[in-house]
Amino acid sequence: MDAVIRAEDVSKVFNAGLADEVRAVAGVSVEIPRGRITVLKGPSGSGKTTLLGLIGCMSRPTEGKIIVEGKDVAKLPERFLTNVRRKTFGFIFQHFNLIRGLTVSENVMLPLYPTDIDSKQMQQRMEEILGKLDLTAKLNVKIEKLSGGQQQRAAIARALINEPAVVLADEPTAHLDTKLSGDLLNIITALNKEGKTIVIATHDPLIYEKPYIDNIIEMRDGAVKEAALL
């Protein structure tokens, strides 16, 4: 199997050595197959978000290896980790994490600001992506003026602006009703059809019970309970 990312025996310990030490992820080994949709499922507190952060190079594991495109990134210094994250991943956060006071277009282009990309090209990319996500009319609207569903789509657009190979989404349906959740799934499957690898952390059956979901990793208490590659 062709894995974009492999986690080998990774653990993440918070507050190590203190009374409130937490082993959020304990000795997990998983593979994220290229070009497929992987779902991390499990009850609240089981470590989904933490594992997603490890996979997406948001933080480094306490132990173990994270291999992205064949390279171990666990021990990389911060700068290089940022670089890997910037080139490979697009994140859709549970709470959107959009920056209030900025317009939709500014929010979407934000990841590319410090890069070397030409401004015109950046603008084009943004317009194209927002067009696909049906947000062209809202280009110059302040982000907080948007509805929840529109904000979600703006957040997706931002995750796509750097043309990532892997899109990571944390509880993407948590703030959406059934119809919007359906729309979201359509967007995600469309992205997958374009060839993007998708990882979703969720406990929403609406997602993981869908027949086209390939790969489900079930977590419990920081460990993988069951990994089923359908």
Binding site: N97, L98, P114, R158
Partner: peptide
């Protein structure tokens, strides 16, 4: 702090934020 976190999360380097 939250905004700095977001910038970092979406791919800004430490030096970009300090800039």
């Amino acid at each position: 702090r939250q905004e700095i976190g977001i910038l970092k999360a979406i791919g800004w380097e430490t030096s970009d934020v300090l800039q």
